[in-house]
Simulated scan of single mutants.
Amino acid sequence: MTEKKATRKGSTPIYVWVTPDEKAAIEANARQTEHSTSAYLRSLGLGYAPKSIVDNQKVIKLAQINGDLGRLGGLLKLWLTNDARTAQFGDNVIRATLARIEDTQVQMVEVMKSIILPRSEL
């Protein structure tokens, strides 16, 4: 005699009333954890806290790199306006700054490539 595996199909649903904004937020959170909305809410209701597939430390690193790029861009803009305060800087300094911006962009791309965690690390 074979034992029939229990499934959720035909089980009793639980209805939760939410606003459209709450529904969108719940669905977004479920997508971040690569779960269906139903599986996400069931896991939370049973006390399991799903882990995000996004590495938060790398997101913070991206924000820092973005800040660096903003500062370098502001400095470059100041030099290009021929401001008297920047008269002592020559073309070599501007070229070095452009090279640093390019290096920072490469660093940012590398962090972006690694921001999504593989399932094996969750």
Results as ranks from 00 to 15, higher is better:
residue 10 G to P: 01
residue 10 G to I: 04
residue 17 W to N: 13
residue 17 W to T: 14
residue 18 V to K: 08
residue 18 V to Q: 04
residue 22 E to F: 05
residue 24 A to S: 07
residue 24 A to H: 05
residue 25 A to K: 08
residue 29 N to S: 15
residue 30 A to E: 05
residue 31 R to Q: 09
residue 32 Q to A: 15
residue 37 T to P: 01
residue 37 T to C: 09
residue 38 S to R: 10
residue 40 Y to S: 09
residue 41 L to R: 08
residue 43 S to N: 11
residue 43 S to F: 09
residue 43 S to T: 12
residue 45 G to N: 04
residue 46 L to A: 10
residue 46 L to F: 12
residue 49 A to K: 15
residue 49 A to F: 13
residue 50 P to S: 06
residue 50 P to G: 06
residue 51 K to E: 12
residue 51 K to H: 14
residue 52 S to A: 04
residue 53 I to S: 14
residue 55 D to A: 04
residue 59 V to Q: 06
residue 62 L to N: 03
residue 67 G to Q: 03
residue 70 G to D: 04
residue 71 R to D: 02
residue 71 R to E: 00
residue 71 R to N: 09
residue 72 L to E: 00
residue 73 G to C: 01
residue 74 G to V: 04
residue 76 L to Y: 00
residue 76 L to N: 03
residue 77 K to P: 04
residue 77 K to Q: 05
residue 78 L to S: 06
residue 78 L to T: 08
residue 80 L to K: 12
residue 85 R to T: 11
residue 85 R to S: 09
residue 89 F to G: 02
residue 90 G to F: 02
residue 93 V to I: 15
residue 94 I to P: 04
residue 96 A to Y: 03
residue 96 A to F: 08
residue 96 A to G: 06
residue 99 A to S: 10
residue 100 R to H: 03
residue 102 E to M: 07
residue 103 D to C: 02
residue 103 D to N: 06
residue 104 T to N: 00
residue 105 Q to D: 09
residue 106 V to P: 08
residue 107 Q to H: 11
residue 107 Q to N: 12
